[in-house]
Design a protein around this nucleic acid. Structure first.
Lengths: 226, 226
DNA sequence: CCCCATTGTGAACGGACGGTGAACCGGATC
DNA sequence: GATCCGGTTCACCGTCCGTTCACAATGGGG
C-alpha cells in the first residue's frame, strides 16, 4: 500500500503510533513542497492533516492538495472540539474528520471506511516471512511472488507455523492447535501434510520447515542459529 | 427541510435534544414499516440510526433503507466504542458514523458535511470489475457490454461479492450479509445462487467467482499489493 | 558398525464437500 | 383459481483431499 501523507512534521506521537499499530505506512511533510518531493511514483494513498496544531497552514495545505491536477483524496482532518465551527464553508477541503484527542480504533475505522468509499483497496491482512506471503482475506499463499496452490489443511498448517516462526511444535500440539482440540487421530497425519507443504514450497524453500528429531517441526530460522 | 428519520423509537434524549438545538426536523420509527408509513411525500432528508442500542435491528434497518428503489441517504450511524469492529464489511450500510456519547457540535458538523457531500452526489453508482459493470441505480448488470438478466437475489449477491473483490466469504457470512441477519435457512442455498450466477456470467467469465474448498467463495483476483 | 526409533515416501481408501438437476412452495399477476 | 416466476430445498453423484498404512531411508546411541 502506498504511504499516507501526514501533516505536520514532526507528527503528533499518538497519531504516528496509531497508524503504525494499524499497519498503515506514512510519511510526514511540513508543507506542500516537501509533500511533492516525498511523493511516491504511484501517488499518496491519502492524507491526514492535523488542523488542531497549525490551523492556517493545515487548511492551506488541504487547499493546495485539492487543487493539484490529480486531487489528493481521501483527506482526513484532525480537529479539536473548538474548531468544529471552522469546518463550515470548508467542506470541499476534506472528506472526513476526526475529533482530537481520538481513540486509535476510531481513526482506524474512519480510514477503513474512507478508503472503501473512495474506491481504493483496503490494506489486506498479511503474514509475511521472507519470500513467503499469506493473504488471510483471500486464503491465498505465494512465495517469491508465485502463487501456491494449497489445500485447506495445508494452508491452515502453514498459517499456524508461519505465525510462530522459530518455535518448535510437537505433532500433538499441531493436531490440537490446527486440527482442533477434539481431534482424535494418528500423529503421522502431520508428517504427511508437512511433506506436501515442503513439496509445494519447492526445493529451494523446503528448508523453511525443519524437522526436530524426536520433538516435532519448526518453521523458519531458530532464534539460536548462527 | 424534510425531516430526518431516526431509529429507534423512543429516541435517546440527547440525540433528540441535539437535533432540536441544531434546528433539524426529525421523526422516529421503530422499524422499516413505520418508517415507510411516516415518510413524507418528498422523502426523508436522511437517517440517523443508533446502532449502540439495538445493533441487530439497527443494521437490518440500514440494509432495508439501502435496498429501497430510492436508497435513503445519507445514513449516519451512532455506534459505541466497542462496536467499531462491527463496522467492517458493512461499509455500504452507512455514509458516516459518530461515536456515542457524542458532542452535539460534532454531530451537527457531521450532518452538515454529510448533507454537503450527498448534495454533490458522491456516492458511487457504478461497480466495475473488468468487463463486469453493475449499475446500482437501475439494478442492471452487464458484462462485456451485454446486459445480464439477473434476479433480485442474484444481483444482490453479485453486488456484495464484487464490491469486495478477492476476499473470501463463508456461506454463513454471505447469508447474513446478503440475505439478512435474521435469515434461517440452509447454507446450500448460496451454492445454488452461485451456480446460477456463474451460468449467467457465461462460460468465459464464470471463473470470476471461485470456490475455496471448505471455506466459501471469492470474487475476482486477490490484490497482492506490497 | 549395527540396531532400532524416528521420519520420509508412495499409494490407496473413503468421507466430505460442492456441482447439478429437479422438485417444492409462496407470492404476484391476470 | 390457474399460471408464472423466483427463492429454497432436496437427492444424487463426481471428485477432491484428509487420513492411514506399509515400507524405505535416516540418524543417533551403544
Amino acid at each position: 500500500m502506498e504511504p499516507i501523507l501526514l501533516f505536520p512534521d514532526p507528527v503528533p506521537p499518538e497519531l504516528a503510533q496509531a497508524l503504525d499499530l494499524a499497519g498503515y505506512p506514512w510519511k510526514a511533510a511540513t508543507d506542500e513542497a516537501t509533500a511533492a518531493r516525498l511523493e511516491p511514483d504511484d501517488g499518496w494513498a491519502g492524507a491526514i492533516v492535523c488542523a488542531h496544531v497549525e490551523p492556517e497552514r493545515a487548511f492551506a495545505l488541504c487547499r493546495a492538495l485539492r487543487k493539484r491536477d490529480a486531487p489528493l483524496e481521501p483527506v482526513l482532518l484532525l480537529v479539536s472540539g473548538t474548531q468544529l465551527g471552522d469546518l463550515e464553508l470548508r467542506d470541499d477541503l476534506f472528506d472526513d474528520f476526526c475529533l482530537a484527542p481520538f481513540h486509535p480504533r476510531e481513526l482506524e475505522a474512519r480510514l477503513k471506511h474512507l478508503f472503501w468509499r473512495t474506491g481504493r483497496g483496503t490494506r489486506p491482512e498479511l503474514i509475511e516471512y521472507g519470500e513467503l506471503v499469506l493473504n488471510l482475506e483471500t486464503y491465498q499463499a505465494a512465495i517469491s511472488g508465485k502463487p501456491l496452490d494449497l489445500t485447506y489443511m495445508e494452508y491452515e498448517l502453514l498459517k499456524f507455523l508461519s505465525s510462530h516462526p522459530g518455535k518448535v511444535f510437537t505433532r500433538e500440539t499441531l493436531l490440537s492447535r490446527v486440527w482442533g482440540y477434539e481431534y482424535y487421530g494418528g500423529a503421522r497425519t502431520v508428517d504427511v501434510h508437512i511433506r506436501r507443504l515442503r513439496a509445494k514450497l519447492g526445493e529451494h524453500h523446503a528448508g523453511l520447515i525443519q524437522t526436530v528429531r524426536s520433538v516435532g517441526y519448526r518453521f523458519g530460522q531458530s532464534r539460536w542459529s548462527l
